[in-house]
Every structure is written in C-alpha cells, then in structure tokens.
C-alpha cells in the first residue's frame, strides 16, 4: 500500500506540481519548436513519453550495475547521453521496420528527442532522488505524460493565437514565450497541492 501511495505521489508530482516544462524548465526546445499544431504536438508528446520511460529504465540499470560498481559516478552525464542517443537510434530503426505508420507519423521528431534535455534530466533526477527501479520507470513515464499535457495545452493555445490581434513585433516566439510564462504561472498553483 505504501509503495502505491509513494508511486502515486511521484506521478502527481511529475505531471502537475513538478512538471518538467513549467517548473523545471527542461525540454523547452521541442516545447517551443513542435507546438504549432495540436496533431504534431501529440505525436511529439507520445514519442517523448515513450523514450523517457525506456531511458529511465536503462539508465537506472547502467548506473546501478556498472557505474556504481566501478565507482564511476562522475561519469553519469557522459554515459547517460551515450545510452539515450543509442536508444533513440535503436527505437527509430525498430519502428521503421515494424511500425512504418507510426514511424512516418512521428517523422523528424523521433531523432530530435536525442537532444531533448528532459530525457537526460529524468535520468539524472532518478539518481539524485535515490529512486529504485520501479520508481524510476514511473517517474520517467509520468514525467513524459506531464510533457505531453504541457505541449498539447500549449499547442492548442498557439493554434488560437494565429487569429489573435496582437502587435506585429510580438509575432512568433515572443508571444509564444509570454504564453508559456503565463502557463508556468498557472502551473505554479499546483505546487500547493498536498495529497496525504
């Protein structure tokens, strides 16, 4: 029972109060780059969720069974980047062969995830928070879901922004950044969330 509660607390934290984008400011690049349309935002969000879950599992294994054993904790960043890059490459090849429809739907966003700092962030945070294997995977997947929530909400606002009447000099990223800032303020409201 206790484990379930702690997992639930981790999930709620990752999705709402400690949202990767709005309170930790990780993964801002795809958040701004791929949020012009809701369709592509959903695709990107799902791909990131998938990779974050898998990456947390594998980086946890690499850390526990290799880095800690050889007392090489200072190599975490380098080793994790290696793991994530190979993982994304592997997933890309696997999808292209076995699920070509999903592969074409995700398109260029799949390789872009390699450089998404939220993925490296989740791997490092797992170690920092001393999570065990299950907790790491849950944190990875729910962190990805938080990213999905953020990017879909943001994309739907940006779709409406196209028709909004704001000064010309605000066009493009300025208005997007202001919107993101306001959304981050709104998500700050979740930081007071106390469950148990």
């Amino acid at each position: 029972m206790e484990t379930i509660f702690s997992l639930l607390a981790i999930s709620l934290g990752a999705i709402l109060s400690n949202n990767f984008i709005f309170s930790q400011f990780l993964g801002i690049c795809p958040f701004l780059g791929v949020s012009k349309k809701v369709d592509t935002a959903v695709g990107m969000g799902i791909a990131v969720t998938f990779v974050m879950g898998l990456a947390s599992a594998i980086t946890w294994l690499v850390n526990t069974f290799i880095l800690v054993k050889f007392d090489l904790m200072y190599m975490q960043t380098v080793a994790f980047i290696l793991v994530i890059a190979s993982l994304v490459q592997f997933i890309e090849m696997f999808l292209q062969k076995s699920m070509p429809t999903l592969y074409t739907a995700l398109g260029v966003y799949l390789p872009l995830i390699t450089t998404n700092c939220a993925v490296l962030g989740v791997a490092l945070l797992n170690i920092q928070n001393n999570y065990n294997f299950i907790e790491s995977v849950v944190y990875g997947i729910t962190g990805g879901l938080g990213f999905l929530l953020a990017i879909v909400l943001f994309a739907s606002i940006r779709e409406r922004l196209v028709f909004a009447d704001y000064p010309k000099c605000w066009d493009g990223f300025p208005i997007a950044l202001v919107t993101a800032g306001l959304m981050a303020l709104a998500f700050m409201g979740f930081s007071g969330l106390q469950v148990w």
Binding site: V62, I66, V78, A79, L82, V83, S86, Q89
Partner: peptide
C-alpha cells in the same frame, strides 16, 4: 575502459 566498452557495445547492438 567502461565508457569504451559501453560505446563499443551500443555500437555493436546498433
């Protein structure tokens, strides 16, 4: 060694 082996391993798998 560790990074080299890890890299070689992932390279091989890929």
């Amino acid at each position: 060694l560790v990074l080299g082996i890890l890299g070689a391993l992932f390279g091989l798998v890929l």
